[in-house]
Design a protein around this nucleic acid. Structure first.
Lengths: 256, 256
DNA sequence: CGGAATGTTGACTGCAGTCAAACCAGGTGG
DNA sequence: CCACCTGGTTTGACTGCAGTCAACATTCCG
């Protein structure tokens, strides 16, 4: 994590172009830029660890980061894959609690670090920024709860189905082209699965013809059938409870 | 969910006594109270379902609620057990998204419902309230991430250990008395376990002498041994990777 | 005391994790 | 152009843990 020490003017310009600061007051961004630094994070290095007390709020300029919780078996549970223009660390600063996740770079990345004190000062004195933060953190909480829902599903097939569905929840179109926002192993870790299981489930769905997988590009061929399979898994499990012949349910699952 | 239609003055007094509104401006609480109602929620009834668009922000006066995500196998993943003086629904209102969890009453409860429009109006016009909300939601996000960490642990024994430890994370005392904030089945559902597995793990820890269980009262006899067991599980798994004789590790796990 | 709700224990099964090996694509260099 | 290597993914075989079901024990209240 090497500092770049860009001239302040250039740093301000970079920041004002980032989606994170879009729509913010120019003077505000300038004040923040005056207390910020830009860093380079090399691929597979880990600039911050779970349990650290962060001294900055961070915004990704380029590259990709993953926020993850290290697990006891040596693997990791990915909380978020950070794309350029997205930020992290705000909640830690606002609560004064240590970072709840570790950070590492999926590839060489550039990160802007806003000094914690400057950040907190601006949040507390600039109502517009406070409002922006309230919206941001609220949205992040909602997203986290959605992720929790997905990875709480008892069936691994269902987790994958839900993951695919939630990429276009409100669409009535049948076909959707998704390309995965990262390596398959990282997506798997976000769903609480191993890469092997994730691969098997994608293969299974591919055999059924419901999706087509081409490397990182996933094409949903029939969103309705995907939804059907989702509820069919529920039905099957519910039926087991109600002691109705599960053969009927099994027939419905892949009926299309 | 029957409305009580308390006189406004009494409603305001009730609210001002709740921990949720502690430290807030009196006039602010009064304005909110003018747009609030109090409800009775009978045990095991479900006033709000996942996917509803909430029209209020809620604060629990008495009783206990559980916020949970219904799962495909008919069971549920509990997000939070709500105690008196705690609130919920803010993030949904702030983001305009539907409720990410269902609500049901663990026992007969009283709930105050603040009108959504009044709530949002006060948040946006009262900086102090906006700040309070920012702190509240940030803290909630941190807690949610901690829960995510616990329930992401691959070993069920470790989930229980982490759950017990995090009830007194900063203490250097050896013995801690905890009483579970709800039925064991609900705690289990919060850890992503079945009640059977939870019971088995508690029993296991009890046999080791590390804890003592008496109904809903759990006594940690040796916090350090509990921590040792936690890291021992990690070590054992890590050692497997490094191909070191796991017999040594197995000996350490329960050595105390 | 009796009945309901809750928790515990036991037996069994299946799913997903683990390990190991094959496969594949992209890039590098001879 | 082919050989080689590396990182990523897929496939297969196996195992163990935790979920499921069912029976029993316990606690709590009316």
């Amino acid at each position: 994590m090497n500092s770049l020490c860009l001239p302040p003017a250039q740093l301000r310009d970079t920041m004002s172009r980032l989606a994170y600061f879009r729509g913010w007051d120019t003077a505000l961004v300038s004040r923040l830029a005056a207390n910020s630094k830009q860093f380079v994070v090399a691929k597979d290095t880990c600039p911050l660890s779970k349990g650290d007390m962060p001294e900055h709020m961070y915004v990704l300029v380029s590259g990709q980061l993953r926020l993850y919780i290290p697990l006891s078996n040596g693997s990791e549970r990915i909380v978020t894959l950070v794309a350029p223009g997205e930020g992290f660390g705000e909640a830690s600063l606002l609560t004064g609690l240590v970072l709840p996740y570790s950070v590492s770079a999926c590839r060489d990345s550039h990160v802007i670090a806003v000094d914690a004190h400057a950040y907190l000062r601006e949040v507390s004195t600039t109502p517009a920024m406070m409002g922006a933060m309230l919206n941001l953190i609220s949205m992040r909480l909602m997203v986290t709860l959605r992720d929790l829902e997905i990875c709480s599903q008892p069936s691994s097939l269902q987790r994958v189905i839900r993951f695919l569905i939630c990429h276009q929840p409100n669409a009535d179109v049948e076909e959707i082209a998704i390309d995965l926002p990262g390596r398959k192993r990282d997506i798997a870790a976000k769903l609480g699965l191993t890469q092997e299981t994730f691969s098997r489930m994608l293969g299974h769905l591919g055999q059924q013809g419901v999706i087509t997988v081409n490397g990182g590009a996933v094409q949903i061929n029939s969103l309705s059938r995907l939804r059907q399979m989702d509820v069919a898994i529920c039905d099957k499990e519910i039926l087991k409870i109600r002691e109705i012949d599960p053969g009927q349910a099994a027939g419905r699952i892949f009926a299309g």
